[in-house]
Design a protein around this nucleic acid. Sequence first.
DNA 1: CGATATATTATAATTATTCTAAACTGTTGA
DNA 2: TCAACAGTTTAGAATAATTATAATATATCG
Lengths: 142, 142
Amino acid sequence: MLKNSEFIDKLRSSGLRPTKQRLKICEVLFNRDKTFHFTIHDLAMQISKQLKEKISLATVYNTVHAFKNKGYLKEISINSDKSYFDTNISNHHHFFDEDTNELIDCNDDVIEKVNIKKNLTGKKINSVEVLVKVASDNQNQN
Amino acid sequence: MLKNSEFIDKLRSSGLRPTKQRLKICEVLFNRDKTFHFTIHDLAMQISKQLKEKISLATVYNTVHAFKNKGYLKEISINSDKSYFDTNISNHHHFFDEDTNELIDCNDDVIEKVNIKKNLTGKKINSVEVLVKVASDNQNQN
DNA sequence: CGATATATTATAATTATTCTAAACTGTTGA
DNA sequence: TCAACAGTTTAGAATAATTATAATATATCG
């Protein structure tokens, strides 16, 4: 659970002024105990549920991207029509439940460190993401 | 290098009648030595480059999805505005070059088998995909 | 070949995301 | 405190990938 001043710090360090709308976004994103996996649509829904007024989608997109660029949010590689983000920025991987389109964190006890033994010359590794797609045992998906 | 009759088999087993357009799609997809990573747009471009006439995008989408569902093509999990596919359907992983938006296969000597030590109850693992995002060493991306 | 079911196509519809320009607000300095 | 300015918000337009539609064309099977 974070305080307002922490949200302001997060915004300022991302190059954004603290405004009413952005503070609300921070509250929905960061004022929680557990990791939050979301799409922009999810986030906008939660915000308008909590506020009477709506926040413009453009503002949500801009703020989320600023946080992503600063490293306060992680974008997750899934092939989907939407982009998924994660408030857990530590190095971890995911299950993706194809039945429910839900993302679930993989803890350390699920996947051990993936070792990249060779890299492309002249390139730097920015991230290593493992996605484990699962589905109900008694039906064929895809 | 495959023959026309092999394309017809592929189409038939995917539940599709062999038509002129679909055979052309097969040729572009499967008549090659090396793995082909592509987006629908890439594929449509290559086809119209090789033919005088254009194939409707709808046909390309439908055919690619039928092949994907049958397992002749693999969809790759990347967060992008487009979907990427791979003609290499064996179990393997990828580098994604963020400078060029290019996908490169990881051979066995790059990543060893990823071991999933625990799975969600009642779920079956459909795939395990590792994506290694790289970028030029002397610039900051993202 | 002829009948029928399936394909192709151009175009419209849909959806996520980005862009735009006008109205609004936080900030800074007097 | 207040004015001026730079940065923000917003609705709505623009863009781009993908899917749906419905009329026309083609493959298949007898």
